[in-house]
Design a protein around this nucleic acid. Structure first.
Lengths: 241, 241
DNA sequence: CGGTGCCTTGAGTGCGCTCAATTAAAGTGG
DNA sequence: CCACTTTAATTGAGCGCACTCAAGGCACCG
């Protein structure tokens, strides 16, 4: 498998975000089975209620997890970017509580869940690292609940865009916060509990107030600080120490 | 400390919800320092941004975790009931990403975070159990996001009440789903992203449609199944296997 | 028996929704 | 490279759900 090693390296990097693993633990992860699978944009990678037999690590491309209402309206729960573990909760639970769908062409490394479970039992540091990963994800969930439940449209959309900018910048220069916005306005709406039409109006306002500039798909933040104040975005929750 | 042992027992029960701990692990937890602290209704137990030096286990009474907007509006993130670990994320993170405030008179067992961290490193099963606990909490967060973002007022309130009924029944008879509703309508509103006034109207509708009956604080569900259908409540997410 | 907190209700407003039409952009195949 | 198709963005008109603000009722508590 061509990309199996990079996938495992991404997983290890993710786990070591706060505390380095021991050499043995790292080695054990690299010995793990890992199959690469590719998806076109818009495809399902995981489906709610399926059994969690594999844990995915995003190697390339973007995706999102979501839940749906019977009437068909959708709530996006998280945005998955390269290096993200897909629904890390499923290391500990055997059934999926949400679906994952691709946003772009997407490549995942799939690791058998059982293998990872066994590793958590042999290496407490690995279990703890996964715990930290879950806790960080939960911090984002909480911020999203506040965002969806208690902010108005402009603030919601702005806040989401700030979060994505910071999350994407971790892998790049921390001063240039521009990024390629790959979500449609409908998907943005599904992330923040709004309609596509209203996301459009909110973004129009953000453009005209000078908070955002868009060139093709590249989104720039000419007044980053001011936007953070307006949307009450404080990046700390993305990396609680 | 009078109630230290019951508090630790509750913690062990919580951790063993899916998989039994080994005797050694259980024993190690019981050896842990645990201080009981009591709070009156309406008091803060934990404050956002404080350092997480202790992990709390709810022994008696109810509380909730929340985040606030600068303008003062509040989003409740979770309802804490006897046996709940207060913000289990904080075993893995050293800073609090939300506050905890009591709903009623409240008693917690406080365990030094460092002691629990050390246990997770000595007993991988404990780390894994905490991971499962986080994953179960995350499943509730996700359902709440869907609830807040994509359902109307009546469904939101009904869904929350169904969830509370089931969560409370775990410790009692699973057929009698009635329970003492201790949240004010304002707090319900802060849980589901509505105003107190509108929660009132939604509940009025639920009463008049025969979905709910309230005697004093006791809330009954005369048409449980129908209410579950209406609110799309499916208790599976509370105990994903 | 007055106080205090919560519930209840009304009137009026507005934010975000719905639905539909139009424009723009991105693919796609010849 | 251009017609054709598809998908996304944009905008308007009108509606309605939930909000705001305020008043009144009720229950519990000292």
């Amino acid at each position: 498998m061509e990309n199996a090693l990079p996938a495992l390296r991404l997983l290890v990097d993710g786990l070591e975000r706060f505390e380095p693993l021991t050499v043995d633990a790292r080695e054990a992860i690299f010995q793990t089975d890992c199959v690469i699978r590719s998806y076109a944009a818009g495809r399902y990678v995981l489906r709610e209620n399926d059994r969690a037999d594999f844990i995915g690590v995003a190697v390339d491309g973007f995706a999102y997890s979501h839940k749906q209402t019977n009437s068909g309206s959708r709530q996006i729960l998280s945005v998955i970017m390269p290096g993200s573990t897909l629904v890390p909760e499923n290391i500990f639970l055997s059934r999926l509580d949400c679906s994952v769908q691709t946003l772009t062409a997407f490549e995942v490394g799939l690791i058998p869940r059982k293998a990872l479970r066994d590793l958590t039992m042999s290496f407490p540091e690995i279990a703890t690292s996964f715990g930290t990963m879950l806790a960080l994800d939960a911090a984002i969930f909480k911020e999203w609940m506040l965002n969806i439940g208690r902010r108005d449209a402009r603030e919601r959309v702005g806040h989401l865009l700030c979060e994505m900018a910071v999350r994407l910048s971790k892998s790049r220069s921390p001063t240039d916060l521009s990024f390629n916005l790959l979500m449609t306005q409908e998907q943005i709406g599904d992330s923040v509990g709004l309609t596509a039409a209203h996301v459009n109006r909110a973004m129009k306002a953000l453009y005209s107030e000078g908070y955002l500039i868009k060139e093709k798909t590249l989104l720039k933040f000419p007044q980053w600080e001011k936007l953070c104040v307006m949307t009450e975005f404080n990046p700390e929750y993305l990396s609680y120490s």
